[in-house]
Amino acid sequence: MIAAPVRRVHWYTQIAPVATVIAAVLLDLLWIPVPGFNAVAPAFAVMAVYCWAVWRPEYLPYTGVFVAGLLEDLVRGTPLGAGALALLAAQGFVWAQQRLLRSRSFEVMWLGFAVAALLAAVISWAAVAFSYRAVLSPWPGAMQYVLTVAAFPALALLLMRIERGMPRPA
């Protein structure tokens, strides 16, 4: 019997996806001196999860996304679990639409992100409303969604550079 060939993966390739998702979560702490902007600042973590779920799903474990979501809740002060649900939903969407999203043009990927981010935004809104037992105004979340979709190409291009700099399996 011939053993299956073993490919070796560089540590950088293994940790870069989760590390960049966590860095994106910490970007929530960025202080922008524009009145009211921080309340509707783009959701960078969803962008990072989406990009890695499309490009390198094997290096973005669900547990990593779950932990990043909890970290987001702890940073923002939102109910524990809301961020994790939203990020896992975005990852699950990509998983379900893998064939459609992989190896397509950037425009298709951006369109896919618009759907994934909408799913994440709606789940986040519903989760917080459920936890607070209150009807929340959807407008701040809607505004954040628009800014998130608009800012996607900037972060996606940055992550693309990181992804292209990853060593290929030997």
């Binding site: 547990t63 779950f66 524990l80 679990g81 994790a84 649900l85 459920f130």
Partner: peptide, 19 residues
């Protein structure tokens, strides 16, 4: 992995419910 995904979704929801 599929099982883990569903398990983590359930865990997130449980945390939210117990929040």
């Amino acid at each position: 992995q599929r099982f883990a995904f569903l398990l983590l979704l359930a865990a997130a929801f449980a945390l939210l419910a117990l929040g």
